[in-house]
Structures are given as C-alpha cells and as structure tokens.
Design a protein around this nucleic acid. Sequence first.
DNA 1: CCCTTGGTTGACGTTTACGTAAAGGTAAGG
DNA 2: CCTTACCTTTACGTAAACGTCAACCAAGGG
Lengths: 151, 151
Amino acid sequence: MQATIGTGATGWEADDRNRSIGELAEEFGLTHRTIRHYEDEGLLSPTRDGQTRVYSHRDRARLVLICRGKRLGFSLAEIKEFLNLYDTGDAQIEQMRYAQSLARQRIEALERQLQDVQQTLEELRHFDIQISEHLRRNGTTETQPMEEKLS
Amino acid sequence: MQATIGTGATGWEADDRNRSIGELAEEFGLTHRTIRHYEDEGLLSPTRDGQTRVYSHRDRARLVLICRGKRLGFSLAEIKEFLNLYDTGDAQIEQMRYAQSLARQRIEALERQLQDVQQTLEELRHFDIQISEHLRRNGTTETQPMEEKLS
DNA sequence: CCCTTGGTTGACGTTTACGTAAAGGTAAGG
DNA sequence: CCTTACCTTTACGTAAACGTCAACCAAGGG
C-alpha cells in the first residue's frame, strides 16, 4: 500500500522513469489536488501526453524541494522563489548576482531557524529528562530518558 | 522606535515588570490584534487590571516560545499543545507520562526538521559558491562566497 | 457494450491566522 | 472641557493552501 515513502533518501534508488500524477501522489504522500495546486502556483510544470500530465525526473526533484520547504514552514510563494534560484541556469551576470543575494537571504533565515530548532530541542530534551527523573523518584520506574543523538 | 527586538536574547536583560499589550507588541514586533488572538486561542491568559490586560513575566516567557514555534512553522494549535507541556506542573503520573510522550514526538519532529534545515543549508551554500566561482571566472570579481559558520 | 481505473477541468467550501474597521471606555495633559 | 494615547469588544474580511464535489474523457477487460 506504500512505495518508497518520503523523499526517497534511500541512497540512489531514484529511477529516471516519467511519472503520472498518481504515482507521484503516492510516493510523496500528497493528493492529486495538491500536486495540481503546485502547478497552478507555478511550482511545477509537467509536460503533457495529450491531456495527461507527465512528470519528469526534474519535476520529481523539484517536488522533493517543495516538500522539504513545506516542512520548514515556507509558503508556496517562498518555495517558488527558492526553486527559481536553481533553474536560473546560465543567466546574465546581473541575474546571477540577484539569485545569489536571494540565496544568501535564505541562508541567513535558515541559520536563524537552525538556532531555533537546536534551542527548542535542547529545552525539550531537558524537559524529557526532568520528567524521567521525577518519575524515577516517585517509584514507577519504566521510562528512561531518550537516547542522545550525536549530530 | 524599537526596543530590545526579537526574543530579547541579550543575556539577562529581562526585567520582571508587568507589561501592557502595547509594550509586548512592540517588544516582539507583533500587533495588538495578534496578541489578543493568541489569548483567544488559549495560548496566553494575562490577568486583568479592571478591563486592561496585564502580562506577567510568565506570559512573556510563553510569548517567546510562541514566536519561536511560529518561526519553526508550527500551527497555533501545536504550539498550544506544546506550551501545555511546560505548565503541567506537579500533575499526576499518568499526565506526566502523556506529556513526556508528546515531548518525545516533538523531539523526533524537530530532529527531522534539523536534518531538513541542515541539508537545505548545505545545498544553498553550495549554490552560493557555484555562483561565486562562475562570476569569478567571468571577470567581474566583486563577490566572494559567504564565510562558513562553524556549528 | 458497459464497467472500472485513472486522468481532466471547474468551482465552491474550509481552516488557519490574523487584518481591519466600528464603536466605545479611561486616564493624563493642556 | 477637549484632545490624545492606549486600551477594550464585536464582527466581518481575507489570503493561503488545499479539500471536496460534479461532470467529464479515454483506455482496457470481461
């Protein structure tokens, strides 16, 4: 009922086959509606076989970025701007400078976000440990603090 | 026109004074409307002086968490659930277990998010460097890649 | 030939997170 | 007393990101 979930981070099992909307939907856990919505918003532009949408490897790659952007709390508009950075291709010097400045803004935003995530994680892990200790002191010993994940 | 912006991460300049909605709004860069909205949604519960809202140190602390949660892309409902973890206080064992399980879910979500942020940062920095090199090769030498930030 | 599966385009509905008036209370200052 | 600044509530508006029909086409199987 479910094939190669998520972003397909599993090594390099990404075959280059073109995909239908349904395949993409299942692979990414999205609805058809959602994928078409991304197209309406200009985030995807699949080719057509007659009337049917055909998603290339590149479309799929963009969808990976879209999903990650979403998980990071970016709006579709922001994600679009972001995607446009990547297919600037061999643009004019001025355009590349502009793209670079946008990229740097993005980088700074993400660095802030990284701080936020790390700080929140720290607090939550502390919280987790507190509870575990509290529970241990009060008899009922069944839970131990989460194992640390070394970055 | 602007005092102690952001979360006030500046050491320990957080004085314990009670605040009006206007002060809080300016400090956090929010509107009155927004802060009242958070109250409507049960994220804040300031006391009253007559009809006027009075925000304690604790309310302010919660607002810090709310803002961070927002930056991390959580919904108000999620943030509320999150906040409730913290003021579980000396609850019953069962409630603490529950809070802990929620906290752990949060931790896992944030660990995933951490991965996302790091990966995106990596890609963007790579992108930045690519552009810089391209620009360098094509004469116009004015920009150098962003300095690396050691985590 | 009909049915199922999977695709299509509208078009209106919904939730979240506020914005934006409208209409007013209250206390300080000139 | 009037203005100004700051607060209040009520209530409708809105943008984003889809959900949810409805009505349709097309290819293949029994």
